[in-house]
């Protein structure tokens, strides 16, 4: 339950944004990252619909590969 997934910000509207990862779009709250300089194209770690930390693109790509492997093994 504590696992956060990196996503790319597509659009920002106040504290809310639309993020995407691997073709999936989600509404994400930026309420816990107020004050961060965030732009479309930036990557954030998302947990239960809230961005908890800004991350680099390379960190996001490496994590996506890991999650693909994890999902592939789930029974």
């Amino acid at each position: 339950m504590c696992l956060a997934v990196p996503m790319e910000i597509a659009t920002i509207d106040g504290f809310n944004c639309i993020c995407q990862a691997r073709g999936i779009e989600r509404d994400v709250s930026l309420f816990m990252l107020q004050g961060e300089d965030l732009q479309p194209g930036d990557h954030v770690l998302v947990h239960v619909g809230y961005a908890i930390q800004k991350v680099s693109e390379s960190e996001a790509i490496a994590s996506w590969q890991l999650f693909d492997e994890m999902l592939a093994t789930d029974a």
């Binding site: 339950m1 504590c2 816990m32 809230y50 908890i52």
Partner: peptide, 17 residues
């Protein structure tokens, strides 16, 4: 709402907002 810190912080954020 069950969870450890990572999940509880968004619950707090929800109420704070």
């Amino acid at each position: 709402a069950a969870g450890f810190e990572t999940t509880t912080a968004p619950v707090a954020a929800m109420l704070a907002e």
